[in-house]
């Protein structure tokens, strides 16, 4: 848990810098929102330890965050006003930087893969995106939503 709190704090601070450089939001203004996000992470994580239903921690964390930001929760507007200051793309940039830095450990195995699996991967990613887009478009139109 201590490990997680440290990582949340460090990533939170890096995000505030990125949010400032890339989206012009001053770190002072976005700080409370970042704290709220980190607190939800910690509480959600603790909840997942207490609740006897076995589901990944991320599920409880997401559920908690949706709950306190949804219209049924008193004070939801207060929370979302704070978290709105943290740009989602600013939060994604450091995450993908960590992903990039871990890339080297997979490159050895990746080089050993045959060309076939690489081709199939591309087709699989394309297929899932394209078919989801087609079915979304179809069903949204069918129900007159777009």
């Amino acid at each position: 848990m201590k490990d997680k709190i440290i990582v949340f704090s460090v990533v939170g601070l890096i995000t505030l810098v990125g949010n400032w450089v890339g989206y012009g939001v001053s770190p002072i203004k976005a700080f409370p929102g970042m704290v709220v996000i980190a607190l939800i992470a910690i509480i959600g994580y603790l909840l997942s330890k207490i609740i006897p239903i076995k589901l990944p921690a991320v599920f409880w964390v997401a559920l908690l965050a949706i709950l306190i930001s949804s219209p049924i929760f008193p004070g939801h507007a207060f929370f979302t006003k704070l978290t709105d200051e943290v740009n989602i793309l600013a939060l994604a940039t450091p995450i993908l930087a960590y992903a990039g830095l871990s890339f080297g450990k997979d490159i050895g195995v990746f080089k050993k893969l045959s060309w076939r699996i690489v081709v199939v991967s591309l087709v699989v990613f394309t297929g899932t995106f394209l078919f989801a887009a087609i079915l979304s478009e179809f069903s949204l139109r069918l129900f007159g939503k777009i």
Partner: peptide, 16 residues
């Protein structure tokens, strides 16, 4: 670990 933060940010966009 930090995916958790991302998921929360997405979830707070979904809530409202």
């Amino acid at each position: 670990i930090c995916f958790m933060l991302f998921v929360i940010k997405v979830a707070t966009a979904i809530g409202p």
